[in-house]
Design a protein around this nucleic acid. Structure first.
Length: 424
DNA sequence: TATACGTGGCA
DNA sequence: TTGCCAAGTAT
């Protein structure tokens, strides 16, 4: 229910100009857009014909993901897979590896499946309805592609549009219940000509003017008709219920380095669920009551395990995670346990390692490098033969907290392995 | 309708 | 440091 709809009298018929505070119109927005539109790698310049492949690829990458994060991945994908046929023909692991680090990995699997469907079809469907049937394309993306790539009068309602519309009409309904209402109001504003520009214009407005915090209302082409602004309540929209944050889970990760080639033991996670189809060093189950003292019960093989100082912390959307890292060296030429593989350092780039697992490897390799040069003391040797009982970590000096380990650290460590990269 | 599903940046 | 949030989808 909108504020405007609360009024008992019919809408004031604006016989006057577009500036009348009565209702927003597409024209004012498009005038603003023509002057302030953002230049983006996947966006056609004025007069250019949009490429459906680029539009689709960018829209999928941009799902719940910032423009800054997407840019390098978008150009990488264009190089690796110049068109939908190339993407369709690629091996799935290549696609997963290229996507590694971007997050929400089911998008990559769906992207690949979608490419194959489109290749089979011969081309992208040019209607919202046709698009909607493809894997990884939901209501928003179907509308966005239909409007942007095919100039269909479709509504593309994303988070930006939700924010703009809930403010414009002071929609009190909380999200996501307000979606149908927002969609209808948006669709009613879509101009017969330039539907693609309109879709991008609303998103640009939301991203640069109608921002979540401290919106720049004075610069907004829709300031006059904005109901929330008129009441000074713009920052309180959209109404939403805050979600609980997840409970901490803990577990262990096992980093095995093979002597000789320094290869690392990896496996591939199941296709469905968290980090589906992505690579990882073997890990234990992640539970609320995991006990690192018993960590070796989950070890993938028999070896002289060392429990590394420090903990790898990571935050997923729905829960935080803390991983204790164990490492071991095995003999040159050792074989991998069933379902696992040894990957040489140089081959790690081609592995679909998600951010959290890159952190684990960087942590293990960095601590190892540091300790091999300085104090072989910080490590806590543990014996597989006697798992549960006797391995109280050293009680003497408190272990200094390791520096924040970032996934990007892995590249540096892989490049030039054993050197003391970490101090104190 | 509610929940699972990544990651990084910023106030 | 903590919480929010970014061009959502699938089930």
């Amino acid at each position: 229910m909108t504020r405007a709809a609360d009024k008992t009298s019919p809408m004031p018929a604006p016989a006057q100009k577009s500036r009348a505070p009565g209702r927003p119109n597409a024209s004012d927005l498009l005038v603003w857009y023509d002057r302030h539109r953002r230049v983006l790698p996947w966006r056609a310049l004025p007069g250019e014909r949009p490429d459906p492949y680029r539009v689709w690829l960018s829209e999928v990458m941009l799902q719940q993901t910032t423009i800054a994060a997407v840019k390098p991945y978008f150009s990488k994908f264009l190089e690796l897979f110049p068109d939908v046929a190339a993407l369709a023909a690629a091996a799935e692991e290549r696609v997963m590896s290229a996507w590694a680090g971007l997050g929400y990995y089911s998008r990559a699997r769906n992207l690949h499946a979608c490419a194959r469907a489109v290749a089979a079809l011969g081309a992208f469907p040019n209607t919202e309805e046709g698009l909607r049937k493809l894997p990884g394309i939901g209501a928003y993306t179907a509308g966005a592609i239909a409007a942007i790539a095919f100039d269909r009068p479709a509504a593309a309602v994303d988070g930006n549009v939700e924010r703009v519309m809930t403010r414009l009409f002071a929609i009190e309904t909380t999200l996501p219940a307000a979606r149908p209402e927002i969609r209808a109001l948006t669709l009613a504003l879509v101009p017969r000509d330039r539907p693609g520009d309109f879709a991008q214009a609303v998103m640009d407005l939301g991203a640069t003017i109608c921002t979540p915090k401290r919106p720049a209302c004075a610069l907004c082409p829709w300031m006059a008709p904005c109901v929330a602004r008129a009441e000074g309540l713009q920052e309180t929209f959209p109404r939403k219920i805050k979600k609980e944050k997840g409970v901490l889970r803990k577990g262990a990760a096992f980093v095995v380095v093979r002597a000789g080639d320094e290869a690392i033991l990896l496996r591939t996670r199941p296709p469905e669920g968290l980090l589906g189809s992505m690579a990882e060093p073997p890990t234990s189950a992640w539970t609320h009551d995991y006990d690192p003292a018993k960590g070796l019960l989950d070890a993938p093989l028999d070896a002289r395990w060392k429990r590394l100082p420090g903990i790898v912390k990571h935050v997923f959307t729905h829960f935080p995670l803390e991983l204790t890292v164990f490492s071991a060296r095995v003999a040159s030429g050792a074989g991998a346990p069933a379902g696992m593989r040894f990957t040489a350092r140089a081959g790690l780039d081609a592995e679909p390692l998600p951010g959290v697992m890159k952190k684990v490897l960087a942590h293990a390799l960095e601590v190892k490098a540091a300790s091999s040069v300085s104090e072989p003391k910080a490590e806590t040797p543990v014996d597989l033969a006697t798992p549960s009982e006797p391995e109280p970590p050293p009680r003497r000096a408190p272990i200094p907290k390791p520096p924040r380990t970032r996934p990007s650290d892995l590249a540096r460590i892989v490049k030039k392995p054993p050197k003391a990269t970490r101090k104190s």
